[in-house]
Structure formats: C-alpha cells, structure tokens
Amino acid sequence: MTRSTAIIAGFLFVALIAAIPAALFLHEPYLISLFGRLAILAVAGVGLNLVLGHSGLPAFGHAAFVGVGAYSVGITTLEGIPFLANGWAQFGLAIVLGALSATIIGALSLRTRGVAFLMITLAFGQMLFYGAVSLERYGGDDGTTLPTSSTLAGLSLERGSIALYALSLLVLLLATYAAWRVMRSPFGAVLRGAAVNERRMQAVGIQVFRFRLAAFALSGAICGLAGALLANHAAYVSPANLSWMRSVELAIVVLLGGAGTTFGPLFGAAAFVLLEEVLSGLTEHWRLIFGPLLLLVVLVAPGGIAGLLSGKRDG
C-alpha cells in the first residue's frame, strides 16, 4: 500500500459515508441502495482477496459462501425460530456457517494446485448451487422474498434503510482493517511467502496447508457475513447468489481493484458497480463496452486499479 492509494481509499470511504446525509436531506434513497451494493460487494471482495490475492490461490467458488450467509439469514427469518430470528444470531450463524463450509471445502480443495484447484473450488461451488436449487421449501430455483429483515441492537435492517447501509460500511471498514492486520502479521507473511514459493516455505518447516486452510476459513467467514448483509439488502435470497457467474464477478472485483492489495476490493467494487451504473445509463447494451473494458484492464493494467495508482506493476 502506498500513500496515494491510501488517500484515494480514504476519499472513497468519506464519499460512501457522505451518502448518508445526502440521502437524508436530498431524498436520494437510490444512492443508499447503489452504494450499499458497492459496500457489500467490497466486503465479499475483501474475503476473497485473502485467498485469491494475498495467498495466490485461484479460488472460483466463493459465491457459494456468500450464498451460505444469505440463506442463513433467509431460512432463520422464514422459519421464525425464536432464539435464531434475531440479528445477532443470524449474522453469527452466517459467519460460522460461512467459515465451516469454507473449512470443509478448503480441506479438500487445498490438496490440489493450480488449475486443478481452480476447477475443484468451482465444482464445490456448483454443488452448493444445486443444493440451494433443491430447497423447494425456500422457492427452489426462483428463491424467495424475505417478509421481514434482521433486527440488530434494536435497529431494523430494512431494505434501503440507513441502518443497513451504515452497518455495511462499518463491516467493510472493519473487514478491510482486519485483513490488513492479518496480512501484516507473521500469519500473513507465511501466506505471502507460500504464494511466492511454497516449496521454500515447506523447507523452512512451515506446514503451509494449515495456514492456507485458516485463510480459506477466514475468507469464507467474511463472505458469509457479506451474504447476510446481501440478504437484507435485497430482501431476497435465491440460488442465483451462488451461481458460478457470481464467483467470476467476485474475482473480477478483486482483480480489477488489484489482487493482494489492501484497498483493491474497495476499488474493484467501486469501479464495477459505478461503471455498470454509468454505462447502463448510457445504453441498454452496456456490456458491449464493459466487456472489452475488462479485457483492456488485463492487457494494460495487470496490477488492477491499486497497481495503477501506486505506479507499480504489482501494486
């Protein structure tokens, strides 16, 4: 992280916070909805970045963990189980189940390397996707709308509410800080070292597998949390949350922003959501512009936005 990226990230955070008074006084509720999506996408990006960016592992099934978090909220809301239908329990459950599913999937996937790893994470993601499709009780293929939102510390996290938006920003801030701390710790040094040269790490006497599994679980927990926010944000859960195209989208957020950088996920989510917003305002066929733009980013700015800002190839 260089100074310029930190300053720009700071500006972005301030702009995200400024949306709250703007929405209150200028009556622009749409801004909250748009930025809320941005923040939640960025949280999921922070989670994925731990694996995809910092650890250099091409994971392609992270939408599944977001989906696990979303369904945790959705199912507890719909079933109305007394002690589980409050916000703390729901968010806690989303985090725990996100971490748990990531631990199981990670324990199996991390036995492989490279493209095999990419494909096996994708395979597990697909399994969870079809698992969600089979939940006939919760709408099967189509998913289901959520009649009520989570309630956290007396605040109702309704769709489009300031409370939900503020919570999403807080989670983003905390997740970004936590990821930064983790990557500065000896634990993070092992992850980065193994990304550069796994064999050398093993030779030093470090069991890389355990560290990677812990990173995978942490990343699943953060994605699960993002999913819990998403379920409230959309007031809707569906298997589409878990589809492999969503996993690709998440990876795009991380790569676009700058893989393995602190603020990359924030930059990536901002670029992704805002570009989509601006381009789709210009033309119905905005993907004709967005698609080649993605290709262009890979060709001219492989370090993503953070890489461009800091002027180094690897950000």
């Binding site: 990419l118 690709v248 905005w286 290709l295 060709l299």
Partner: peptide, 24 residues
C-alpha cells in the same frame, strides 16, 4: 496477448469477451 498471463487474468480477460459476444 493473454497466453503468457496467469490463469486469473486470462479468466478476467476472456470473461470480458463473453460479455461482449453475448451482448452482440
């Protein structure tokens, strides 16, 4: 130009092409 890039960058770049072709 993508041959010598890592698999993630290739996924990103070719996904851009998918969007382009689908929309076209």
């Amino acid at each position: 130009t993508l041959y010598r890039r890592n698999s993630l960058e290739q996924v990103l770049g070719t996904f851009g092409l998918v969007l382009l072709f689908d929309e076209a």
